[in-house]
């Protein structure tokens, strides 16, 4: 909800007013989500409903927690790309502006799907904190974008073996490779064809084993936390 608020000029109303998906539309879909009883099978039988934890937003436990973790990443990405599209850096090429619009719209489908599947177990809409991002700088924007995408990949890679519901496992597989495509795109725009820092650069892929990263939930939250106003807790998700 607070992602739509206008009380923080730098971060408020990122998805809403100027984009084609208005605030009201978004809320309407949120409403549809909350009454959907078609959540994944395990979600229905286990009470892993997130609860406030010392004022923090608790992601919850089990598959719900993993979905909320992914959902929080998608929220961050959608808010970020929405802001980039609304206030693009100077002299942005039409190609790059189209890329950011495409990235926003594809992440939006992930966001809406997680919201739908989570139903009333979804964490609230988070308020992003992009104070460290210089939206007028191409380099800052591309770097932040690929940082989010790289993190999204690492989050789903690390969470995979803790997933209980087979359908959720299949779904995260379908999403994680798209996040990897996004990461590669943004990295290639910033460091074209670079072995050191490009699409699958040595700074992110192990040079001896050729592996992308896999992070445990607490590590994901730790790295995402600076970009989110609310305190996020992965207390009930696997730590090892």
């Amino acid at each position: 909800m607070s992602i739509f608020s206008s009380d923080t000029p730098t971060s408020g109303d990122l998805i809403g007013s100027k984009s084609s998906v208005g605030r009201r539309t978004f809320l309407r879909f949120a409403g549809i989500s909350s009454v959907s009883a078609m959540a994944l099978t395990t979600l229905a039988c286990e009470d892993h409903r997130p609860a406030p934890l010392n004022g923090a937003v608790d992601l919850g436990a089990g598959d719900v927690g993993i979905m909320n973790l992914a959902y929080s990443q998608e929220q961050l990405e959608v808010a970020f790309y929405s802001q980039v599209v609304q206030t693009p850096y100077a002299n942005i090429s039409s190609e790059e502006l189209a890329f950011f619009t495409d990235l926003r719209d594809r992440e939006r489908t992930h966001l809406e799907l997680f919201k739908y599947l989570l139903g009333d177990k979804a964490i609230p809409m988070l308020t992003p904190n992009f104070s460290s991002v210089d939206f007028s700088s191409r380099e800052s924007v591309l770097k932040t974008g690929h940082t989010f995408e790289d993190l999204g990949v690492a989050a789903l890679n690390g969470a995979g073996r803790f997933v209980t519901d087979m359908e959720l496992l299949a779904l995260s597989g379908k999403i994680v490779s798209v996040e990897a495509r996004h990461a590669a795109l943004l990295r290639d725009l910033l460091h074209p064809k670079s072995q050191a820092m490009g699409f699958a650069g040595d700074d992110i892929i192990t040079t001896d084993t050729g592996l992308d990263r896999a992070f445990l939930p607490p590590q994901v939250v730790m790295m995402a936390q600076p970009f989110i106003q609310q305190k996020i807790s992965a207390e009930r998700l696997p730590k090892a």
Partner: peptide
């Protein structure tokens, strides 16, 4: 999964 993501980047 770690290999899978690298293939997607490629």
């Amino acid at each position: 999964l770690q290999i899978h993501a690298v293939e997607a980047r490629h």
